[in-house]
């Protein structure tokens, strides 16, 4: 009776991937914004720079809910327990059958990188994730709707979107906008061993000047 001795184990595979640092958990990010009046010009420029210039850019319409997981009953002592962890749940409103995305975003890394570098985990999950997080002890922090265009250039993801407020009784086509401008984001997900792609990100950002000024934005420096 010939039997394979071992069954590959999910945990083992993941551990091996962690050891050889091939888990795509690092994100390079550059952000900027553009006034609604100049949106058309930016989109045209991006279509020229990105892949598939011959077709119209894909649109997206996402709903993002941000939870904070921390020990709410604990005394406010310094440390991760009082600061908590932010967990973001995103769902595509225009494609309700797609899985929800659970996203963990770490603090920006210190160092002189061409773009903002942070730890990032994107986990597709089942649609009961909000209930799961609430029972886990997390509380809803804020939510918003992001609507816009998505393009790509090689491995780089380019999104141009507008953020809208969430409210009771808000219809899909009657949203309240937060600002008079669109966000422009360039991001790429990579591994610890492959940092060269950050240069490509910077190069693309330079080609968008002076239409959009894309920068490393460290939110911790933006005080309330």
């Amino acid at each position: 009776m010939a039997m394979p001795v071992n069954v590959p184990h999910v945990g083992e595979n993941l551990e091996a991937a962690m050891k050889s640092q091939i888990v795509p958990d690092q994100e390079f990010l550059l952000q900027g914004s553009v006034l609604d009046t100049s949106l058309g010009v930016v989109i045209d420029r991006l279509r020229g720079l990105c892949d598939n210039a011959d077709i119209l850019p894909e649109t997206f319409h996402d709903h993002e809910v941000v939870f904070v997981l921390k020990d709410f009953s604990a005394m406010s002592t310094p440390g991760p327990a009082s600061q908590g962890v932010m967990l973001r749940v995103r769902r595509a409103m225009d494609y309700p059958d797609l899985p929800y995305q659970l996203r963990y975003v770490g603090y920006p890394e210190l160092g002189n990188y061409p773009a903002l570098l942070r730890n990032c985990l994107d986990i597709p999950v089942s649609n009961n994730v909000c209930e799961f997080l609430t029972e886990l002890g997390a509380k809803l922090d804020h939510e918003f709707i992001a609507k816009g265009f998505i393009m790509k250039k090689g491995r780089i993801k380019v999104t141009v979107f507008k953020m809208y407020k969430m409210g009771i009784g808000m219809a899909k086509d009657n949203l309240e906008q937060m600002t008079m401008s669109h966000m422009v984001e360039l991001s790429v997900l990579t591994t610890k061993t492959d940092m060269s792609v950050a240069e490509d990100l910077r190069a693309l950002a330079d080609q968008l000047k002076p239409l959009v000024q894309l920068e490393r934005i460290d939110y911790r420096r933006l005080g309330p």
Binding site: L14, M18, D25, L102, Y104, L121, V125, N128, V129, E131
Partner: peptide, 16 residues
């Protein structure tokens, strides 16, 4: 409550 997730979920646990 049972959540089905991609196995990257395992990497989230150390952060919790």
């Amino acid at each position: 409550i049972t959540l089905s997730a991609d196995y990257l979920f395992d990497l989230l646990l150390p952060r919790l």
